[in-house]
């Protein structure tokens, strides 16, 4: 894959595809991932005890187990402390939608998206009516965003990263690393 910039250091830092179609495709994929999380917050609710149906979906990990240790964890740790886990889920998914949509700290949030996809998959894949490949595709989407640093193309990472790279502060270094 060719890069937009030419010097070796810039190549290592940017590594963006030279092809405009590829850059647009990456940006569209990232924004769709953001919208995926945003739209799927609509049926969740910040009020308990069911949190808009989130409790029932979480129970699927126990009622239709995919991986025994995960089912045990959900049954004995997650469900007895459901309010805390539900709020954690809502906060993580709200941030996933927001950060991926605008392309800020994209690699970090793509990694979180991968982890959340695995957690959802381990709870839902064996539930009747669920299609395994929808979860595999969700995983692949976040993996591509992570690998391609998709926030650098038509995203805020691309706008702000040059400035972060010139600064010495810990936050700038952190943002450079996770973008």
């Amino acid at each position: 894959m060719k890069a937009v910039t030419s010097s070796p250091s810039q190549l290592a830092a940017a590594a963006l595809p030279a092809d405009r179609v590829a850059r647009v495709a990456l940006a569209v994929a990232r924004m769709l991932a953001g919208l995926l999380w945003i739209q799927n917050l609509s049926w969740k609710s910040p009020t308990g005890p069911n949190f808009g149906g989130l409790h029932e979906w979480t129970e699927n990990a126990v009622n239709h187990p995919v991986f025994a240790p995960w089912a045990w964890t959900v049954e004995h740790i997650v469900l007895p402390n459901f309010a805390a886990f539900a709020w954690m889920t809502l906060i993580v998914e709200t941030c996933l939608g927001a950060f991926l949509l605008v392309g800020l700290a994209t690699r970090f949030w793509a990694a979180i998206g991968l982890a959340q996809t695995v957690a959802i998959s381990l709870s839902a894949v064996n539930t009747p009516g669920e299609w395994f490949w929808s979860y595999a595709l969700m995983f692949a989407l976040h993996l591509a965003i992570l690998g391609a640093a998709a926030g650098r193309t038509f995203g805020l990472d691309g706008v702000l990263r040059p400035a972060w790279r010139t600064r010495r502060g810990a936050l700038a270094k952190l943002l450079t690393a996770v973008s």
Partner: peptide, 22 residues
């Protein structure tokens, strides 16, 4: 709105503030 609205508006607030701070 819904939680989707929360996430969408959070995205734009976050983005505008990030750009303005830089």
């Amino acid at each position: 709105g819904s939680l989707s609205t929360v996430s969408m508006q959070f995205a734009f607030g976050l983005g505008v503030i990030a750009v303005a701070s830089m």
